[in-house]
Design a protein around this nucleic acid. Structure first.
Lengths: 203, 203
DNA sequence: CGCCAAAGTGAACGGTCATTTACTAAGTCG
DNA sequence: CGACTTAGTAAATGACCGTTCACTTTGGCG
């Protein structure tokens, strides 16, 4: 529930049918490169083919653009996960697919994922809470599957392992290795799986 | 919210001998919580017991405060690593110690490490380059040790694995598990080690 | 064609905030 | 004890930037 400008039953009169998408793409690229506060509305507008103030025809304001990006990321992840769960595979296979999908999405749009990882603090308070909640649910889906595979291990520990595994995958966002993407994907998936199954270093 | 004003009869040479440290600590805490641009000089000053403009007696400006934090982090890591390397242990033991030190430093000052991870984009360009270089050298120390242990694996892949391992450790910065720190330390060390030694998922 | 709403423009507004400046308080040293 | 330097203060400055507003352009539809 954000600010899509009246998508009601009336026929749209559009000059550029996907200006909104262009704005989002431009903003993602610029914010990933320079950071949210270093990018002005004029910069985003220029990169999207309009003037800065024109963005207000598509978004409620600068924060709203950021929120739209975050929603897109978390929704992509959630949908992918739900699709996998709906197939009711064996737990170990389900987990492998969850990892694979996350890796694919991460490597598939690095700029967007980078924004997602870096600019959380710049969200308006209420959106921040809403999105955090969504993210927690996503994490919890991993944890549930892992619970079945490692019933002996404490939930809090499993949650820490899931975060660590995803952290490993996200490490690819912050530097550029020379490793080509298909191979990197396999590496990161293996790293995530290895992390999820380390022996319980417990007391 | 002022602290105990050191009532002992020592004669202070300055008004507050470690005001600089207090500024850094205050800035680290505030920036970790709210983000660099949401924190004003007045906020930092107030939390350090002076007024905003007073910070200019200790730092050249707002970016300089951030730079000092970054230098502190990277220097801590580098010194710890150099100490370990100087002991000339067996490679596998050296690597374990590198991991342990990184985990200890990460969990030891979460707020500072969070700033380090989040606010890289807000550094002035030249400092950014200088610090990135330092960081690359630190990573390279891990890679060199790992090369000895895994001579069959490509350098680029090893670098990716090191980043992934450290990414797993840093995951602890972005949420709070209920897991107590000593146990979390063991978990993250195990996760890092598992990541560094995943079989080479070949091309 | 002519209407009208959506899309885009450019100028003006306003608030925030880092930085500067002139001044005052405090502590050191000869 | 004074002079001199350092630390801290309060107010003023100035730039930047998100947002608003009045206006123009576009293009679909009856």
């Amino acid at each position: 529930m954000s600010d899509a400008p009246a998508p009601s039953n009336t026929a749209p009169r559009r000059r550029d049918p996907d200006r909104r998408q262009r704005i989002l793409a431009a903003a993602a690229r610029l914010v990933a490169e320079r950071g949210y506060h270093e990018v002005g509305m004029s910069d985003i507008g220029a990169a999207a083919g309009i003037v800065g103030s024109g963005i207000y025809r598509h978004f409620g304001g600068k924060p709203a653009v950021l929120v739209a990006m975050f929603d897109r990321v978390i929704d992509d992840l959630t949908h992918a996960a739900n699709d996998i769960l709906a197939r009711e595979l064996e737990p170990s296979q389900t987990l492998r697919e969850l990892i694979g999908a996350h890796v694919r999405i991460t490597l598939g749009d690095r700029t967007l994922m980078r924004v997602y990882h870096n600019e959380m603090t710049n969200l308006p308070a209420d959106d921040s809470h809403r999105l955090r909640r969504k993210q927690r649910l996503y994490i919890e889906e991993w944890v549930h599957v892992l619970e079945v595979l490692r019933p002996d291990v404490d939930d809090a520990v499993l949650r820490a392992l899931v975060h660590a595994a995803i952290g490993a995958v996200h490490s690819t966002l912050f530097y550029q290795s020379g490793v080509p993407d298909d191979r990197l994907a396999k590496l990161m998936a293996a790293a995530a799986e290895a992390t999820l199954f380390i022996p319980d270093v417990g007391r």
